[in-house]
């Protein structure tokens, strides 16, 4: 690319050919991206931009969109259901993120050893992630049945006399959903951690061992620091995944009992696609969007400072 005609005057024939060649390459490059970009721009970028505009209007399915400024957002401040949805989303995230992180890392460490049956286990762990949420939610709902459900029967074996009502109880519905969420996703993040563990140089462990570090010290001072890029990526993905949790809840509890498992995404769905209040639903979407951006940016900043 960097060959220039030494000492030649500008605008020689060679120069023109080169410019023509470069323009043609650019055009070809664009043509590669274009088919996907048309779909992507129209169906993803467009809606993301439109979202902000709609959130400042009172658009619903019948009327025309009228600009109402911050009205939707001020109404959100006083909307008890919205507060509930926001708190529930944070509740879900506060347990789902650390539990999944710890379990998937633990499983990955375990699988990263020479044990028989590791391959079978890897398959088993990943399987819940590829099965449909509907089938999983239906099966778990039955497993969680209050009176004769297998889970409460197993709890009974351990001497729990008064087992929780799980999805039928407003206190236990959220823990039930969290359990299923963790169960479903830990295999996926385990695979990411396993891939990360392959990049930890064995020499470092060897050296640490020779220096007399025990297993815990080696984990703290060798494995964890080497895994940092993976941990960072997993945390970001997990956080966004938790904030947007929706289909699992929709099928398992439909937000109930009462509003005990109502989450942000579901509230957006309810306001926007059931009640057709597009403007108001978009305002809630903006909040969800902002939350996801905020944690991503914060995590990037923290990660950068640690790396520095």
């Amino acid at each position: 690319m960097s060959t220039t005609t030494v000492g030649g005057p500008r605008n020689t024939a060679a120069d023109r050919t080169k410019r023509w060649y470069r323009a043609r390459r650019s055009l070809q490059g664009v043509s590669f991206v274009l088919p996907n970009f048309l779909g992507f721009g129209l169906l993803t970028l467009g809606p993301v931009v439109a979202l902000f505009y709609i959130s400042f209007t009172n658009w619903n399915v019948f009327g025309k969109a009228k600009w109402i400024g911050l009205d939707n957002f001020t109404r959100l401040l006083g909307d008890a259901s919205f507060h509930r949805a926001l708190l529930n989303t944070l509740y879900y995230s506060a347990f789902h993120i650390p539990l999944t992180l710890a379990l998937s890392l633990g499983l990955a460490l375990l699988l990263n050893r020479k044990l028989r049956g590791v391959q079978f286990f890897r398959t088993a762990a990943f399987f819940p992630y590829v099965t449909s949420i509907v089938a999983i939610a239906i099966a778990w709902n039955l497993l969680f049945s209050r009176d004769a459900g297998p889970i409460n029967q197993i709890l009974g074996l351990f001497g729990v006399d008064d087992p929780p009502g799980w999805t039928a109880s407003s206190t236990w519905a959220m823990p039930a959903v969290i359990i299923v969420g963790v169960w479903r996703e830990m295999g996926y993040y385990m695979l990411l951690f396993l891939a990360g563990l392959q990049t930890v140089p064995p020499e470092l462990h060897e050296a640490a061992r020779i220096d007399g570090a025990n297993a815990w010290q080696r984990f703290r001072n060798v494995t964890l620091p080497c895994l940092r890029p993976t941990t960072f990526f997993v945390t970001v993905m997990l956080t966004i995944g938790s904030f947007k949790v929706f289909d699992l809840i929709l099928v398992m509890t439909n937000g109930g009992p009462g509003q005990s498992t109502l989450v942000l995404s579901q509230y957006i769905y309810q306001k926007g696609l059931v009640e057709n209040r597009f403007g108001y639903a978009s305002a809630i979407s903006v909040v969800l969007f902002a939350l996801c951006m905020l944690v991503t940016v914060v995590q990037f900043a923290v990660n950068r400072r640690r790396n520095a």
Binding site: P47, V48, I54, C292
Partner: peptide, 17 residues
Amino acid sequence: GTIAVPWQAYMIPQFIM
């Protein structure tokens, strides 16, 4: 960047479209 934006956040404008 859009991988970090949950679909649930823009499903409403998409539906309108």
